[in-house]
Design a protein around this nucleic acid. Structure first.
Lengths: 362, 362
DNA sequence: CTGAAAGCGCTTACAG
DNA sequence: CTGAAAGCGCTTACAG
């Protein structure tokens, strides 16, 4: 079907016949550097030199000025396809994210696109339908004309596929060990430590963890950091109940956790994500538990959701936009042949209403 | 700075020197159609014909097969820059949305990208920083190599700018009247009617509206439809309090509305958006009002947020992904010279826990 | 049924 | 200081 419509398109693709009269290019056709040259009374090469800022010491100041004026009058904008063909570069980067339905990735995109625009790059977004395998997608599509790839929070296998493609790659929020690629990470471990310390400081000793049932570095780190942060503190992890990344599944997992009685019953729930935390809050309410009086809940991300809830979520804020921006900057460095150190961006714990002291000894 | 880094890039941009020995292209260089031709023992034109599915009746079945095999063996993928240059088309569409921080637009993108991929098109996303004016952005950037534009939920002036650019344009969720462009809309008016009828059926007679303080068709329609739906029903709009599109501002507006006493005090709040509805629920709670016992609240969109809240939001679900998909299809039609009728997609009211009968007469 | 050739618009050595 | 020319990889008339 794709092929069908494509061929239909192409039949109509007769290159525009130039209808230039003695007065110059017809109104219809977009002006080219030749038109500018004609207009300025110089060669087309000179136009290219001037507009590409390579003219210093090669073209007279006056001529350069004439060219610029002509280009402006004609509304000239260079044909990017031609430039790409000549240069072998497209000034386009692909941003691969697991799903687009989270604010987090929307913000990553925003940051990356901002930096890209400053450097005359474009960003194409590819929400990988399956977290595991981006295989069928980007490199078979029309947009495969790419200078590099930025991949955020992908599963290891997916990253392997990406890496195998040979394109310059920057990984975001991914395992930096043994990576062949530049990495921009969040200090996820520190975020988890802060959350745990916050709960311990409030007096909690029996915690449960609702990890995201997603195979990626970013969630693996959370689990590891949680275990580490707890050792030797008197606090204990009484339960771990993974959930898919949705409110509904968070609710289900939390319900199971909270059905325990006695010492197995946690006083605080640490959730890998705000969506899960929202589900946990719902679960608590349905079981007649008040947040935070009877149960404390923490999340990760600080999505809009976090402050929409009542009480508002105590959560670890991840600077998603900064991650995207740093990622694009790293890719630019790689493309320029500069080496880049792994960057780790700090995160912040935002204490809000969903955490408080544990209930008195029961 | 952009120019700086650009020129630095380009200095390194010496076209790859072909190092083809008698054994074919060097490992490094990406294979071209010439390589495939050599490999298959045919001319480069034949390769182009076969791979472009234009060979039927022009090339023998056997030759075609040979070419395909060679292309596959070499891992050949056509150079898109070259094709674009030749064809004058880029197979890339720009999707302009007011902001990306809403799930709604993420889903619009998903739908558009899916259809685009089926037709070998790419989508570049442009979150217009200001809802009003997209001016500085996309057409000055590297990605200006565009075949068309899809603009969702933009302010009229922004659309005017887009229209002025002369690129094929499809508008989403926008005023269809007097539009020069194809339009894909949601039946927003019907959604509002359903919400109102739902509240009237529950017994509500005093409603308040929290419109989004955003200048766009989609919100103008909500206000108009609300007024119309109320005429002659015994129901009245006792208050209108606009709010910026955020939970915090929804909270502020709802607090003002709910501070009224007597007959000015509504029993139900109709919010233009789920974010505002979430704010309204928070306001109610802070004022000691229970939802839905003391106050009913409705939203629009059916974001994740809607079911994360407790009680869950009664809201009008907008099929965002379908909008994006239909928009891309419409753009494809326009590009093929086919005319397109304005499409209007149905919406659904999802009754949930945030609405109920009004409190007894006070 | 197949091949040689033109040309899309650009950038960059290379000659003057 | 400036211009003529080559060539990036492709598609499509046009000749055979």
């Amino acid at each position: 079907m794709a092929a069908d419509s494509q061929s239909r398109d192409e039949e109509r693709r007769v290159p525009r016949t130039r209808q230039d009269g003695p007065t110059g290019p017809s109104e219809r056709a977009r002006p080219t550097s030749r038109d500018v040259a004609r207009h300025a009374g110089v060669s087309q090469a000179t136009v290219s030199l001037v507009l590409g800022e390579k003219w210093h010491g090669r073209v007279s100041v006056r001529t350069a000025e004439t060219v610029r004026t002509a280009a402006h009058q004609l509304g000239y904008r260079p044909n990017l396809a031609a430039r790409s063909l000549r240069l072998g570069r497209t000034r386009t980067a692909l941003l691969v994210v697991p799903v687009l339905n989270s604010d987090f990735f929307a913000h990553v995109h925003t940051g990356a696109a901002r930096v890209a625009a400053e450097h005359d790059f474009g960003i194409v977004l590819y929400p990988s339908p399956e977290v595991v395998s981006p295989t069928p997608g980007p490199f078979h599509s029309a947009r495969s004309a790419l200078d590099g790839v930025i991949a955020s929070s992908m599963a290891p296998e997916a990253l392997a596929v990406l890496r195998g493609d040979g394109l310059p790659l920057v990984m975001l929020d991914s395992d930096p060990r043994g990576a062949q690629a530049a990495t921009v990470n969040l200090d996820i471990a520190d975020g988890m430590r802060r959350a745990v310390r916050h709960l311990l400081d409030l007096g909690h000793r029996r915690l449960a963890h609702i990890p995201a049932a997603v195979d990626s570095w970013t969630f693996a780190v959370r689990a590891r950091a949680l275990a580490e942060a707890l050792t030797g503190t008197g606090g204990a992890l009484v339960r771990t109940e993974p959930a898919a990344l949705s409110v509904a599944d968070g609710l289900r997992a939390a319900t199971r956790v909270l059905s325990a009685t006695g010492p197995d019953r946690p006083t605080a729930l640490i959730c890998d994500d705000d969506l899960l935390a929202a589900g946990a809050c719902k679960a608590a309410r349905r079981l007649g538990l008040r947040v935070p009086t009877d149960l404390s809940v923490t999340g990760f991300d600080d999505l809009d959701l976090a402050t929409a809830l009542e009480p508002e979520l105590t959560t670890v804020r991840l600077p998603a936009e900064d991650v995207g921006a740093a990622g694009m900057r790293a890719l630019l460095s790689v493309l320029e042949g500069r080496s880049t150190a792994t960057e780790v961006l700090p995160v912040t714990l935002i204490p809000r209403g969903s955490t408080g002291p544990p209930p008195g000894p029961s």
